[in-house]
Simulated assay, not measured.
Amino acid sequence: MDAKDMGDALEKVLVTEEQIEARLKELAAEIDADYAGKDLLLVGVLKGAVMVMADLARGLSHAAEMDWMAVSSYGAGTTSSGVVRILKDLEADISGRNVLIVEDVIDSGLTLSWLVGNLRSRGPSSVEVCTMVRKPLAFDVDLDVKYIGFDLPNEFIVGYGLDYAEKYRNLPFIGTLAPQVYER
């Protein structure tokens, strides 16, 4: 699927496939340098991080294990209530491990802040965060994000793992969805 397949559902492309690929190579090089000679466990947050996790892991020059979590925060409408449920927990014991949480987007940062705290309570050596996209509201939460792909405006974005009603995750770029699609 690409931009022309979306017709009038796509408003504009914000980050091209080439920009994503280049930035992931840079992030992988930073992560390789920071974790040289260390054990690393990548923890992807389902479902959105699938694309980022796969491409980031392939860009690393050393072996890294992967595991997955699915968490859900729920509230009225589109606002997170701060109440988080674990839908799928890690299979690996992370005590004494270096953990890198891989995310597609940090919107408010509330759910991710909770997740970082939850994982830190399990006794790892370290917990860091890598995200493809960070939005402005994430700055309101006390959350240290070590690896950031792109800072993007507070717009409704889709592609490269980001969805609307489970659609558009498979776009190779990140773009804004036309309002008529989600204002129906």
Rank of each mutant, 00 (worst) to 15 (best):
G44M: 03
P172S: 04
V116I: 10
M53V: 05
Y164N: 02
A76W: 07
V43F: 02
A178K: 08
R23V: 05
M6K: 00
F156E: 10
P124K: 08
M6L: 15
I106P: 03
L115H: 02
D140W: 00
G175S: 07
F139D: 14
K135E: 02
D107V: 09
Y168C: 01
L100N: 08
V43C: 09
G159W: 10
K88T: 13
L41H: 02
E103Q: 12
G82I: 06
Y182M: 08
E91Q: 14
V105S: 05
I20Y: 01
G109A: 08
S72L: 11
Q19M: 14
I148M: 06
V50Q: 05
L110T: 11
R169H: 03
E17C: 02
K25H: 08
D34F: 01
V105L: 15
M1T: 14
L119D: 07
G149S: 08
M1S: 13
S72N: 12
N98G: 12
D144R: 13
W68L: 15
T78F: 11
A57M: 13
Y160S: 03
E30S: 15
T176D: 02
G82R: 12
S73W: 02
D107W: 08
R23N: 09
S121P: 04
V43W: 03
V45K: 05
L177Q: 04
A64F: 10
D107F: 03
G48D: 09
M51R: 06
V141S: 06
E17I: 05
G59H: 06
V105Q: 03
A36D: 11
V141P: 01
G117Y: 07
K25T: 09
G77S: 12
P124D: 09
S125V: 11
V181A: 08
P153Y: 06
T78N: 13
E17L: 01
V133S: 01
P179N: 07
E26Q: 14
K4C: 06
S61C: 02
V127Y: 00
A76G: 12
R58M: 05
D32C: 05
M69R: 10
K38S: 12
A92L: 12
D142I: 02
D39Q: 15
L162A: 01
G175N: 04
A165W: 03
L90A: 09
L56H: 05
Y35P: 04
K135C: 03
